[in-house]
Amino acid sequence: MFEARLGSTTLLKKIVDALREILSQSTLDCSDSGIQLQAMDNSHVSLVSMLLQNDCFEKYRCDRNISLGLDLKSLSKVLKCASGDDAVTISAPDKADKVQLSFESAGKERTADYELRLLNLDQEHLGIPETDYSCVVIMPAIEFARICRDMTSFSESVVIACSKDGIKFSASGEMGSANIKLSQTSKGDVDLTVEEPVTLSFAGRYLSTFTRATPLSEKVKIGMAADVPLLVEYPIEDYGYIRYYLAPKVDD
C-alpha cells in the first residue's frame, strides 16, 4: 500500500507545472524515504530530477517500493478540479494499475476522489556524478526567470559567463544583442562562489522551460563547470528539490 497526504494541493500543482512542459509522461518512484523522479526530455538534452522526502507529507506510508507511471497532462487536469487549499491524498495498492487522488476541502465538508490510469513507462535512468561546480550562483528565482525570458527574445543561444565579478548572460541575434550582468550585492540576494571562471553556451528555450518552477522557491541555484551540464536547482521548502540539468552547446 502506498499513501501520501499533502496538506495543500497548491504544492502539488506547482510541482506538476514545473515538470509538464519538459515531460509529457513520467514515473514517480515511491519508497519508504519519499518520492523521486528522474526523466529526460524527448530530445535527451535536458534532465529533471525531483525529490520529495517523506517528511514533506502530513501522512506517508509506503510498504514496498512502487513506481507510478503518470501522464502529466491528465494529472494536471485532475489537479485543476481541486482548490489549492484542499488537502490531497495520493494512494495506490501494491501492484496497482490505477492511482487514486482524494481531495478534502479545508473545512472537511467536501471530498472528491479521482482515479488515474497508470502507464507502464520504460524510462531510462542516468547516473548523475557528484560534481564540484567551479561556479555556484544563488539568485532570486524571479530574476532568473526574467533574464531567461529577455534573452530568448534575442537569440536561440544564451551564453552564461561566470567569474568573481559576477554572472553575465548574453544573447546575440539578427535583431541585435543583449547583455545582463548581476554582481554580488551586500544585500545578499545574489551570492557567487567562484573557484574558476566558466563560460558556457546553452539553448535558451530549455532555460525558459526550467523557470516554470519559479513559484516553488524564492531562490534558484545555478551550478556551472567547464564541459559539464548546467545545474539549475529549485529547493522545495526544506523537503526536497527539483533539479534540471542541461547539456551545453559545444563548438563543432
Binding site: 529526460m40 530530445s43 535527451h44 538534452v45 535536458s46 534532465l47 531510462e124 535512468h125 542516468l126 547516473g127 548523475i128 556524478p129 543561444s157 553556451s201 539553448a203 559539464v228 551540464p229 540539468y245 547539456a247 551545453p248 552547446k249 559545444v250 563548438d251 563543432d252
Partner: peptide, 14 residues
Amino acid sequence: SASQAKLKDFFKPK
C-alpha cells in the same frame, strides 16, 4: 558554430 550536446555525452545510463 556550436551544436547541441546530449546528456548521455556526460551522464552514463544506470
